[in-house]
Lab assay of single mutants.
Amino acid sequence: SPISQSQFIPLGEILCLAISAMNSARKPVTQEALMEHLTTCFPGVPTPSQEILRHTLNTLVRERKIYPTPDGYFIVTP
Protein backbone atom coordinates (compact mmCIF):
# COMPACT_ATOMS: atom_id res chain seq x y z
CA SER A 1 0.00 0.00 0.00
CA PRO A 2 1.29 3.51 -0.74
CA ILE A 3 2.74 5.59 2.05
CA SER A 4 1.32 9.06 2.38
CA GLN A 5 3.95 11.77 2.44
CA SER A 6 3.64 14.98 4.34
CA GLN A 7 5.36 18.25 3.64
CA PHE A 8 8.40 18.93 5.84
CA ILE A 9 8.62 22.47 7.16
CA PRO A 10 11.57 23.33 9.43
CA LEU A 11 10.60 24.35 12.96
CA GLY A 12 12.27 27.75 12.50
CA GLU A 13 9.96 28.54 9.57
CA ILE A 14 6.88 27.45 11.52
CA LEU A 15 7.96 29.63 14.44
CA CYS A 16 8.45 32.64 12.12
CA LEU A 17 4.96 32.08 10.64
CA ALA A 18 3.46 31.77 14.13
CA ILE A 19 5.29 34.85 15.47
CA SER A 20 4.25 36.87 12.42
CA ALA A 21 0.59 35.83 12.82
CA MET A 22 0.63 36.57 16.55
CA ASN A 23 2.33 39.96 15.96
CA SER A 24 -0.35 40.84 13.38
CA ALA A 25 -3.07 39.88 15.86
CA ARG A 26 -1.29 42.00 18.50
CA LYS A 27 -0.91 38.97 20.77
CA PRO A 28 2.19 38.91 22.99
CA VAL A 29 4.60 36.19 21.83
CA THR A 30 5.97 34.50 24.93
CA GLN A 31 7.35 30.96 24.78
CA GLU A 32 4.18 29.69 26.50
CA ALA A 33 1.86 31.55 24.10
CA LEU A 34 3.91 30.28 21.16
CA MET A 35 3.54 26.65 22.32
CA GLU A 36 -0.23 27.18 22.68
CA HIS A 37 -0.41 28.75 19.18
CA LEU A 38 1.54 25.84 17.65
CA THR A 39 -0.77 23.27 19.29
CA THR A 40 -3.88 25.10 18.06
CA CYS A 41 -2.79 26.16 14.56
CA PHE A 42 -0.55 23.23 13.62
CA PRO A 43 -2.38 20.22 15.13
CA GLY A 44 -0.56 17.67 12.94
CA VAL A 45 2.89 18.94 13.92
CA PRO A 46 4.48 17.44 17.06
CA THR A 47 4.96 20.14 19.70
CA PRO A 48 8.67 20.74 20.38
CA SER A 49 10.08 20.43 23.89
CA GLN A 50 10.80 23.65 25.81
CA GLU A 51 14.52 23.08 25.27
CA ILE A 52 14.17 22.68 21.49
CA LEU A 53 11.83 25.69 21.32
CA ARG A 54 14.28 27.85 23.28
CA HIS A 55 17.23 26.69 21.14
CA THR A 56 15.37 27.37 17.88
CA LEU A 57 14.24 30.82 19.06
CA ASN A 58 17.85 31.65 20.04
CA THR A 59 19.01 30.51 16.59
CA LEU A 60 16.40 32.74 14.90
CA VAL A 61 17.57 35.69 17.04
CA ARG A 62 21.21 35.03 16.03
CA GLU A 63 20.13 34.83 12.37
CA ARG A 64 18.38 38.20 12.85
CA LYS A 65 15.00 36.82 11.79
CA ILE A 66 13.33 37.66 15.11
CA TYR A 67 14.20 39.80 18.11
CA PRO A 68 13.22 39.47 21.77
CA THR A 69 11.76 42.29 23.88
CA PRO A 70 10.28 42.34 27.39
CA ASP A 71 6.88 42.16 25.60
CA GLY A 72 7.74 39.04 23.58
CA TYR A 73 9.29 38.10 20.25
CA PHE A 74 8.87 40.09 17.05
CA ILE A 75 9.72 39.51 13.38
CA VAL A 76 12.62 41.61 12.08
CA THR A 77 11.38 43.85 9.28
CA PRO A 78 13.85 45.11 6.67
Rank of each mutant, 00 (worst) to 15 (best):
S1T: 01
S1Y: 06
S1C: 04
P2T: 09
I3D: 12
I3P: 06
I3G: 09
S4Y: 08
Q5N: 02
Q5T: 14
S6P: 08
S6C: 02
F8S: 13
P10K: 13
P10Y: 12
G12S: 04
G12V: 01
E13K: 10
E13W: 02
E13I: 01
I14S: 13
L15Q: 00
L15M: 09
L15K: 01
C16A: 04
L17H: 14
I19V: 05
I19E: 00
I19T: 03
S20M: 06
S20R: 11
S20Q: 13
A21K: 14
M22N: 02
M22F: 04
N23C: 03
N23E: 06
S24P: 02
S24G: 12
S24Y: 07
A25D: 13
A25K: 12
A25R: 08
R26K: 13
R26S: 10
R26F: 07
P28C: 06
P28W: 03
P28A: 11
P28M: 12
V29A: 10
V29F: 03
T30A: 04
E32T: 13
E32Q: 14
E32G: 09
L34F: 01
L34I: 11
M35Y: 04
E36C: 08
E36D: 11
E36W: 04
E36M: 08
H37G: 03
L38R: 00
T39W: 12
T39S: 09
T40E: 09
T40M: 06
T40K: 10
C41M: 14
F42D: 15
P43F: 04
P43A: 05
P43M: 03
G44N: 13
V45A: 07
P46Q: 04
P46A: 07
T47E: 04
T47N: 05
T47M: 10
P48Q: 05
P48A: 04
S49K: 05
S49V: 01
S49Q: 03
Q50E: 10
E51C: 06
E51P: 13
I52D: 09
I52L: 09
L53F: 06
L53Y: 06
L53H: 00
L53Q: 01
R54M: 12
R54K: 11
H55K: 13
T56P: 00
L57Y: 00
N58P: 01
T59G: 13
T59F: 13
L60P: 00
L60M: 05
V61W: 06
V61F: 04
E63Y: 10
E63F: 04
R64T: 05
K65T: 10
I66E: 00
T69I: 02
P70Y: 08
D71C: 05
G72A: 02
G72L: 01
V76H: 06
V76R: 10
P78F: 02
P78G: 03
